[in-house]
Amino acid sequence: MGAAADAQNIAEKLGITHGMAVQELGWDDDTDDDLRAVIEEAIGSEMLDEDTDEVVDVVVLWWRDGDGDLVDELMDVITPLADDGFVWVLTPKTGQPGHVDPSEIAESATPAGLTQTSAVNLGGWSGSRLVQPKTPSKQR
């Protein structure tokens, strides 16, 4: 299995497919450039930055211990998110500088109106998938 197949597997793990609008937040010198390239290859374009005013399908949030208040950040990132969109919070793995405990992500998701649904291992980073709970449309 080559690098292209590995990249496709990572994109599938993340639920990211061609044509999706993906916004990237929290980029810094320590982010995984290979992972970024995989996502951009999967969607067929560059990821959008924090200045976009487009509705996005996915938010990729690189988050480290010390980056601030995760609840506040999550409340901000869901603003441009499509109703069926989702957020990946990517944090350094256990033992790495900036590691964030998964329980902190789960606890921060709830007040922001999100629910954690899955987690993935992405090399030096761990990913937590957060979604907006499905609410039945109100009939009048």
Rank of each mutant, 00 (worst) to 15 (best):
M1W: 08
A3D: 11
A4C: 01
A5N: 12
A7E: 13
A7N: 11
A7W: 12
N9F: 08
N9D: 13
I10G: 09
I10Q: 10
I10R: 12
A11K: 00
E12Y: 05
K13R: 13
K13F: 05
L14V: 02
L14T: 02
G15D: 00
T17P: 13
G19W: 09
M20G: 06
A21Q: 02
V22D: 11
V22Y: 06
Q23S: 13
Q23N: 13
Q23W: 12
Q23I: 10
E24M: 15
E24N: 12
L25D: 01
G26K: 03
D29S: 02
D33W: 02
D34S: 13
D34F: 08
L35D: 04
L35A: 07
L35K: 12
R36P: 00
A37T: 10
A37G: 10
A37P: 03
A37N: 13
V38M: 11
E40V: 04
E40R: 15
E41C: 05
E41Y: 03
E41P: 01
A42H: 05
A42T: 04
M47V: 11
E50C: 04
T52S: 15
T52Q: 10
D53N: 14
D53K: 15
V56Y: 09
D57H: 07
D57I: 08
V58Q: 08
V58M: 03
V59S: 03
V60Q: 07
L61S: 04
W63A: 00
R64I: 00
D65P: 00
G66C: 00
G66L: 07
G66Q: 00
D67W: 07
D67N: 11
D69E: 11
D69Q: 10
D72C: 02
D72V: 07
E73W: 01
E73L: 05
E73N: 04
L74S: 01
M75V: 07
D76F: 10
D76C: 09
V77Y: 08
V77R: 11
P80C: 12
P80G: 11
L81A: 05
A82F: 13
A82S: 15
D83A: 15
G85N: 06
F86K: 09
F86G: 06
V87I: 09
V89C: 05
T91A: 08
T91N: 00
T91W: 02
P92A: 06
K93F: 06
K93Y: 05
T94G: 04
G95Y: 02
G95P: 00
P97H: 09
P97L: 10
P97K: 12
P97G: 03
H99F: 09
V100D: 03
E104C: 03
A106R: 13
E107H: 10
S108A: 15
S108G: 06
P111I: 11
G113L: 13
L114Q: 06
T115N: 14
Q116I: 02
T117H: 03
S118T: 15
A119Q: 14
V120S: 11
V120C: 05
N121L: 02
G123D: 01
G123H: 06
G124H: 13
S126M: 10
R129A: 07
R129I: 01
L130Y: 10
L130P: 14
V131K: 07
Q132R: 14
Q132T: 06
P133V: 01
K134N: 09
T135E: 04
T135N: 01
T135W: 04
P136W: 06
S137G: 09
S137I: 01
S137E: 07
Q139N: 08
R140Q: 10
